[in-house]
Computed example of a mutant assay.
Amino acid sequence: MEYTKLGSTGLDVSKVCFGTWRFSKESDGTVETDRETAHDLLDRFADAGGNFIDTANVYGDPAGTSERWIGEWLDDRDREDYVIASKVYWNQVSRFSDNLSRKNIRAEIEGTLERLDTDYIDVYYIHRWDDDTPIRETLRTLTQLVEEGKVHYLAASSMAAWKLTKALWTSDVDGLERFEVTQPRFNAVKRPHEYLEVCADQGLAVCPWSPLDGGFLTGKYSTGDADEGSRADLDDWDLSFSDQQRRVLEAVETVADELEATPAQVSLRWLIEQREFTCVPIFGARTVEQMDENVGAADISLSNDQYERIADAY
């Protein structure tokens, strides 16, 4: 497994991050990943050298189950060997999760630490922007968590580029801890250019969610059909795709054939090799086979020509 520094932080992380949003998640009455499978997948990721794990206080049914299962798994391991990221706010999962006020952040971090059975979170995201709470109040509270050792680095998930810029400016002006890591929806067919330009300019690490565009970049939905039990089937997705999406997928599949790799591995590798910022894609896996395939992205590399062909297809 290859490792990289996570932006300007001192964290050494595997070049892919395991996302655990499917742990205990129910879709149409089906539990996507049960506890035993979750622990098997974490074992497989760790055995491959993976050390970066992403979760959130809202993941699982009931909410928080993903954090709890990870905490149980960590009981048998050295906590210091892993970089754990979690999140606060967005979906209301408790009486304290409806905004990013001082009181609510304080309550939510305690719940996350208890479920993970740890003294600290390595990377703590605000899951979304809160329009009703001044960002200054949110950042001051998060800064206090860093000073107390409960959080090591602050991060921000999906939001508009101008909101991310406003938060960074507030941190600079008020001498507060700033967001060092971001988590936008970004992949070869979804590219939030303005947001990424802010990340590149400010030296922020980018950890994209949906790096395979919900499975589209694996090629399995290109016919417009979804296999029974697949994510598109469980979530009842619209499987009509644009010419732009199909052009990118064709470029990815061509490169995959050249490398004797899979489209998923090439798509993840294209993100890893971003040139303007550190990029560590967050992938999901429901089976050991999917885990092995996705982790395999660390074992290939793209030529400049292959990288540019995928970029230009967009």
Rank of each mutant, 00 (worst) to 15 (best):
A156L: 12
Q92K: 11
A161R: 04
T141C: 11
L259E: 12
F18P: 01
F277W: 12
V280H: 00
F277M: 11
N187C: 05
A311L: 13
G224I: 03
G215E: 08
Q183I: 07
S210E: 08
Y3V: 06
D75Y: 03
T9L: 12
W73L: 05
M1D: 09
G284T: 04
V295I: 14
T223P: 05
H39V: 11
E289K: 08
Y59W: 05
L42K: 06
F18L: 12
F216D: 00
A205F: 02
P184W: 07
I121D: 02
E32K: 10
F277R: 02
A38R: 02
F277Q: 09
L196A: 01
Y124A: 03
Y89W: 13
H39I: 13
D292I: 01
A85K: 02
V83I: 14
E308Q: 12
Y82Q: 05
G50F: 02
A48K: 11
V88K: 01
S97I: 08
D172N: 13
A167S: 14
D213Q: 12
L271A: 13
S94T: 13
P263T: 09
G60I: 06
G71L: 03
L271V: 06
Q245L: 08
S267R: 11
E177H: 15
I105V: 14
S94F: 13
D130S: 09
S14H: 03
K220C: 05
